[in-house]
Design a protein around this nucleic acid. Structure first.
Lengths: 221, 221
DNA sequence: TGGATCCTTTTTGCATTCAAAAATAGAGAT
DNA sequence: ATCTCTATTTTTGAATGCAAAAAGGATCCA
């Protein structure tokens, strides 16, 4: 197994919440599961720590990073900035073909919305945002965006979705697609910012605070 | 020596150009020099590869990453976006004390400009930009900014500086400080964007292309 | 019963080792 | 001499081994 694949596998395990935030990462178990020795596993953990998904405690091993409300706010703030930038650049550079692809993804997402399939909706949602970012034609930007969104992903999916919010989000996406089709960079940038600000408020309002079991115990006691 | 320190030391070696872009990274030598074994060294290299400073070639070791003109453009583009965002946020959050600190750094930088001390000027320049970014109060943003600027750093310092360009850059910095003092987020954001756009043009115009010795040889032959 | 101290076990971090892959050098053929 | 094929050396990537540190218990005392 290649180094990047190991990193990817562990990243998925963390993002799926299989190892909950704050929990210790069991080196031995992961080694057995991925059928690798500790050396490549630890290399991957250091990389993930640099990405902010893993917290390394000297002589105390590694834990799945725990996000505070502040962390979440910061991540959304940066994400807004990156998407806004991507929106502007995408409007300058996007091809008709790419627009068509995003329009198709949008249509599919709306269909999932109508069917009430939240999981598929989120998947489509993500494809659209990623599509826009990639249409900016800037791999550095795409990379940073991927790293930032990875860290917020769990929160996005966990936050409860009300019918009103959902309908509004879809209407925002209509506006996003529209601005993109008109290649209105400033407009797209503005809508994306608002869209993410709304999402952030949802997430924070839902009281997203990744608290660890042991800490909870401590606070109660 | 702590893991982060190893990463830092190697990063410095790369940024100082001690291992030139494209050159193989001599594991054995670095091990001896840092007095560590290959295990922690390789962990650090994987982290730096994730940061984009090192290129890993399967079964062929690691090389100092080489930046193409496109890479440089992309990095500047993202850097612009990050600084613009930071400028807006900083204006909302910066304290009088922080403004005073940046004003002091600015004064010092202008003094270095008058003295014609380019190195010290760059140092002050960097302190100002970092000060603004940090004043945004968003560690995620600061982290991404640090990572992006690290990769451009060498180019910035290598590019020749004409008296005209230098004078203009200083005047831009006057405007930057002014906007910050007025807490004019939109204005600051706009000036920072222009400032970086100019810098990028300088760098790219200077024909910054990190070409490897062996490649040169190949091209000549 | 509660708590402090010491000892055992486990885990961590790094050095070392080992097999496989790549680079290098050398011999032979043209 | 140059090219090619093979044998040797070097380097890489990963597993194992080892010392130090931390966690987990047991014992002793109040």
């Amino acid at each position: 197994m290649l180094h990047e694949e190991v990193v990817g596998r562990i990243r998925d395990i963390l993002l799926d919440g299989e190892i909950p935030p704050g929990a210790r990462i069991p080196e031995r178990e992961l080694c057995e599961r991925l059928d690798i020795s500790r050396t490549p596993l630890r290399e991957a953990l250091k990389v993930l720590a640099a990405e902010g998904l893993v917290q390394l405690l000297p002589h105390r091993g590694s834990r799945a990073a725990k996000l505070t409300d502040k962390d979440m706010r910061d991540l959304f703030e940066v994400c807004q900035g990156l998407e806004a930038l991507a929106g502007e650049l995408a409007c300058e550079r996007i091809t008709d073909h790419e627009i068509a692809e995003i329009a198709a993804a949008h249509a599919a997402m709306v269909q999932h919305y109508r069917e009430g399939d939240l999981l598929q909706y989120y998947r489509g949602n993500r494809a659209i945002h990623e599509g826009i970012v990639n249409a900016a034609g800037n791999p550095v930007l795409s990379g940073l965006y991927a790293s930032v969104t990875a860290r917020i992903r769990r929160a996005r999916y966990v936050t409860p979705m009300t019918p009103q919010r959902w309908a509004f989000a879809v209407s925002e996406h209509e506006a996003i697609l529209n601005a993109l089709q008109r290649r209105d960079g400033a407009g797209l940038s503005h809508i994306l910012r608002a869209h993410l600000r709304h999402k952030r408020e949802e997430v924070l309002q839902a009281g997203f605070a990744e608290t660890e079991a042991s800490e909870l115990t401590l606070k109660i006691a």
